[in-house]
Nucleic acid binder design. Structure first.
Lengths: 119, 119
DNA sequence: TGACAAAGAGAAGATATCTTCCTATTCTTC
DNA sequence: GAAGAATAGGAAGATATCTTCTCTTTGTCA
């Protein structure tokens, strides 16, 4: 898709929003599976058919500095009898990027095109 | 299916055989996924479409005392970046049960039935 | 404006174990 | 020999993360 430097694709916006929302609701960090459910609810639920998409987006956000992550203590996961989780937190940079308006791509902001209405 | 006390179903026979075979080849213990591959090779490969079947069989064998198991050290699994394994070992009891001829069910051994040949 | 290259989206599958639900088969009992 | 109970088999999905492959879209440059 190739994006403009610093722009956020819709899925990334959703992740950051959901992450901040969860934090406000008392959960300081989230893991992929959890955010998948969150995003599925708030989104058209049509995104995220496969999970690979989500994990790639998480990885991108992290590499951009919008998220930071750490692995769950393996002993805790073992204790609860499930695979290990990776916990993500939205950084200040991420929050700023979101506030700056991340809704860039996919819906090309009409640039100087009088007439030619798309219904 | 309901089995005769102490009998082994074909899948269980395969598991025990594969387990012993792996031990002879230098692997003292095996985990579900590994045995799944082994069994798939030696079997018609038609068994074991879903893994649930295998794990239930492993559980049965363990409850019968034919296998014993222990969980892998969570730190090792974490270190290798994969889910934890559960390691099984064929017990002496299991080996004996196999030697005693586990091939009981499914192919009913003809018991006192002169005539009546099944082609 | 047209072509190319970069990168996101989505499907699929690997890694592991385990649960639930339904179907099919077998053993036992009458 | 028929009926009923018990249980194995198989499909599907939950729990988590991540990789690889192909398809599609978008930005940029000529």
């Amino acid at each position: 898709m190739r994006r403009k430097e610093g722009a956020l694709v819709p899925l990334e916006v959703s992740i950051l929003e959901a992450g901040i929302d969860l934090r406000l609701r008392g959960l300081p960090a989230f893991h992929g599976f959890l955010i998948a459910k969150e995003v599925k609810q708030r989104q058209d639920a049509r995104l995220l058919t496969a999970h690979g998409t989500l994990y790639k987006a998480l990885d991108r956000l992290q590499r951009s500095g919008f998220l930071e992550s750490e692995w769950e203590d393996p002993l805790v996961a073992a204790d609860e009898g499930r695979p290990r989780r990776r916990f993500y937190r939205v950084t200040a940079v991420g929050e700023a990027a979101l506030a700056r308006g991340g809704i860039i791509t996919t819906q090309p902001v009409p640039q100087h095109r009088p007439g030619l209405a798309t219904p």
